[in-house]
Amino acid sequence: MRLLKFYQSSIGKKIVAAVTGAILFLFLVAHMLGNLKIYSGAEKIDAYSLHLRTFMEGFFGFGGFLWIARVVLLVAVVLHITSVVLLIRQNRQARPIRYRRKRRFATSIAALSMILTGPWILVYIVLHILQFTTGTLQPTPFKETPQGIGAVYFNLWNAFQVWWIAALYVVSMAFICLHLYHGLWSMFQSVGWNNPDRNRNVRLFATISSIALFLGFSSVPVLVWADVVPPPAGQDGTVVVEKVGVESPALVAEGQDSRD
């Protein structure tokens, strides 16, 4: 009842959007740190991917912990979008007749583009999961390990050989970070933790975090495409289940050709 009263108000919806946004931000930080393991080599990042499934395996079973995290994230995404859509509807109704001369004085491009970056991020997340988690979309060679999970290094390396996939990822990261530039500051304002005396630090936190996430995330597609990251050893000893019916070295070579 109390929760309902809270959520009925636009302030309640804003706070829900802020808290779920914070959860999604923390996930992004963890995801980015995981991605950076690509620079430690194929074994490290593939072992990390397996570790996510075996973490607390004794209690949750194989992949159990990961599924709990996925459910939490899914609920956060659904609540985040639902709250914001309801707020947008309220805001549209609040000004039925628009101004002939419309000018902005205080706001930022990031704040004004939230409504565009948000849907883009949603579409990107769906495509990203279909490409790397489920392997439903396979524009490039895709392998699975004997445990039935994606061979991270191999899949990433092959995907980012294609210039437009790498470019799409970099652009999407720019949009996510533009969203965060406003969102991370907004989050403190919405829950009431912002004050004139700490606003500078909150603003700095949002700016640094969004730029750091952008650099961390987009370094992977850029450096893979630029051949700074070495190709995966096709015969690196680990038995891999071929999902595509073509020999992988041939495809690797083909991928390089098409890029040139």
Binding site: S10, I11, K13, K14, L87, Q90, N91, Q93, A94, R95, R104, F105, A106, T107, A111, L112, M114, H182, W185, S186, Q189, S190
Partner: peptide
């Protein structure tokens, strides 16, 4: 029937 805040600071 007022709108909600999106922290534009206008």
């Amino acid at each position: 029937g007022f709108g909600a805040c999106t922290n534009h600071a206008e």
